[in-house]
């Protein structure tokens, strides 16, 4: 009964064709099959946020999303948010400036979460940023500077 099915995923504006078993998560499809390893596996059970990607503009956890569920959706990963000329996204630039990371492993998830947080209108105050960024654990403890970076990027986007 193990079988793979052909699938086309729209990732960062480009179609990617792959063959996956239905049980394969979007996270594992990105990392193991498409070598898009910027999306991180931290817990693989919806409890850390490291695997956050955008699906149709909304932040979701790719570890609890089956790859087949994402067919027909626009998927954005960390590899897809900088400008085509290599210019950093304002959130990326703010993360660098504020030192909003240390080991860097939760960082792609934090950045995508932050991009969505700002777009959702949930970056109105430091308290709101802290709450709406709480789905992304950072064990290095860069929370203060993450808040600073998100605040700066949110202000710049207004």
């Amino acid at each position: 009964m193990t079988h793979s099915i052909p699938l086309t995923l729209d990732i960062n504006g480009s179609p990617h064709t792959l063959s996956v078993e239905p049980r394969v998560t979007l996270l594992d499809a990105l990392r193991e099959q498409l070598q898009l390893t910027g999306t991180k596996k931290g817990c693989d059970q919806g409890q850390c946020g490291a695997c956050t990607v955008l699906v149709d503009g909304r932040r979701v956890l790719s570890c609890l999303t089956l790859a087949v569920q994402a067919e027909g959706c626009e998927i954005t990963t960390i590899e897809g948010i900088a400008g085509e000329n290599g210019d950093l996204h304002p959130v990326q630039a703010a993360f660098l400036e504020h030192d909003a990371f240390q080991c860097g492993y939760c960082t792609p998830g934090q950045i995508l979460s932050a991009v969505a947080c700002i777009r959702e209108g949930h970056a109105g105050s430091d308290a709101e940023i802290r709450e709406y960024m709480s789905g992304n654990l950072c064990r290095c403890g860069a929370y203060n500077t993450i808040v600073g970076a998100v605040r700066q990027a949110a202000e710049a986007s207004r």
């Binding site: 910027g38 590899e79 993360f95 660098l96 030192d99 860097g104 960082t107 792609p108």
Partner: peptide, 13 residues
């Protein structure tokens, strides 16, 4: 700023 930062924020680390 962290010199390895750019790689970490772009997913290329």
């Amino acid at each position: 700023s962290r010199l390895d930062g750019r790689r970490k924020i772009t997913g290329s680390a």
